[in-house]
Design a binder for these strands. Structure first.
Lengths: 274, 274
DNA sequence: AACCAAGTTTCACATATTGGAACCAGCTAG
DNA sequence: CTAGCTGGTTCCAATATGTGAAACTTGGTT
């Protein structure tokens, strides 16, 4: 029936297809027409149509009748809020990120590995007010970012293989490690050293240090990075921050371990104000 | 064939059920056991089980084998990022919120109406760094919040009816409007006045002014509020901010109108494979 | 009027979903 | 140790659901 299609994507019946379509719509990054999706050739006309309808009236997609196009719906935002609070590292990490941010005056990212990609779950922006979802929920490549490499370096062989296979190795800059071999060599170095650099591998001028967040038994549960520009600082200067970052990572890891959900149920009214 | 019947809830086949389950899990606000969900009695054992599995291996749910419990998964966060950027008012409103926040030194909320509830999509916090998802994606009641009432007041009769029906009218404080009648009277006043107050109706000590964001033809597309505490300020003082807020709301509305998605397609990286 | 492309609906067919019931731990109590 | 649990997983026939080619409708062009 099925052999090595297992891993990633669709397969599970109707629900799987529906979610696939959700991804397709979200993936476009802008409202999409029925025909555009159809053109992707992944589903026959009628099926696609029906599924879109279902998703739409479930609020997972929003249909703009004027422009006749679909976009991911707000129900996702509601659900994601809940996901973020429960399943991400962000809530436990928050105070630690704040502290670290106060110490080093640079941009900080908290990321997790998801389907071979880096998923940013929180951020502290040196200056200027934080952007909300615009950053959390964002995904990026693993093979050419500090956090991505930091996490990959501490995966075990089997996991790593899967993740490496999913990398696109697109050459973003002249420094991008654009092959599995180059990447693996780099990962070995990172593993030995204990932390990763991003030497303008993803964006020109942007450099960073990143450390994995390891839970008991060295399981990778996330990564933490401090980012800056080549103009403002140097790799050596960033490297000097490693002890602090490591400390923060350790604290987060420790807390993540013990973090059991408070037995109180949900829905009350929480609001603003500290 | 139909519009305003059946509305939200489940019904659409398997996909609908799956999404229902997603809501159930998310709704608990903490990892849930199979049996807890089962106890809800909405689905027969085997069905629930299968659906949970499907959702899990699609990444919509995360299963913690140690604690044997399900929580909303990270795939939702990814999807929501996209939803937030495309379908919410937040991206267009951002600069205007920043400006408003700078002027009035208080907490600002940007909300939309979703399934009869208030869905917060962005926020500016007077002081202290913004919390990310913790606020965006959060939902709250419509009948006892400034933004909720501001939006309801400008719905047309048919829409309003639907929304009112979904209110729980739980009495949060002694000021809460706890009946459809009281609410409707208030809404009429708000409609006439052009803006809404929250007089400690949701949380004791918390007051706010809110204005709807109306697009061409007076369609409600969101709401904007300035919140503070009874100690720090008064309703009259908040009322004095109305012109500024109205201006901001108008700007957001105008921009939302013209906002067509930049023709550039999805970000440089990969599509949906790799 | 004739055409075309985009979107919507139909319908005979088969596959995916269903859910009662049986099954399998792992526990606790008798 | 055995019976009786509770919580979770698997079977499988019955059938409700989802499928998709093709027909149809809409609205815009020439």
């Amino acid at each position: 029936m099925n052999e090595l299609q297992s891993a990633a994507a669709s397969g599970d019946g109707t629900v799987g297809k529906a979610l696939d379509i959700l991804d397709m719509v979200a993936g476009h990054g802008r409202p999409v027409r029925f025909s555009e999706l159809l053109a992707e050739g992944r589903f026959p006309k009628a099926t696609l149509y029906r599924l879109l309808q279902t998703l739409t009236n479930q609020g997972m997609l929003a249909f703009d009748p004027e422009r006749q196009s679909y976009a991911p719906g707000m129900r996702l935002v509601r659900l994601a809020h809940s996901a973020w609070r429960q399943s991400s590292l962000a809530p436990v990490a928050r105070p630690h990120l704040d502290a670290l941010a106060a110490e080093v005056g640079e941009t900080i990212h908290l990321a997790q590995l998801d389907t071979g990609q880096v998923l940013y779950v929180d951020k502290r922006n040196a200056r200027q007010p934080v952007e909300m979802f615009s950053q959390a929920g964002k995904v990026g490549p693993a093979y050419c970012t500090g956090v991505g490499k930091a996490m990959m370096a501490f995966l075990d062989a089997a996991e790593l293989e899967g993740v490496v296979q999913r990398q696109s190795f697109h050459r973003f800059t002249e420094h991008t490690l654009a092959s599995p071999e180059a990447l693996k060599a780099e990962l070995a170095a990172i593993r030995a050293r204990g932390y990763a650099f991003d030497r303008e591998e993803h964006e020109p001028g942007i450099i960073c240090v990143a450390l994995p967040i390891l839970s008991r038994g060295d399981r990778v549960i996330g990564a933490l990075s401090v980012t800056s520009t080549k103009e403002r600082t140097t790799l050596a200067a960033l490297e000097a921050l490693v002890p602090k970052i490591r400390e923060t990572a350790a604290r987060i890891a420790a807390e993540a371990e013990s973090w059991r959900f408070p037995e109180q149920d949900n829905r009350g009214g929480r609001s603003c104000l500290a």
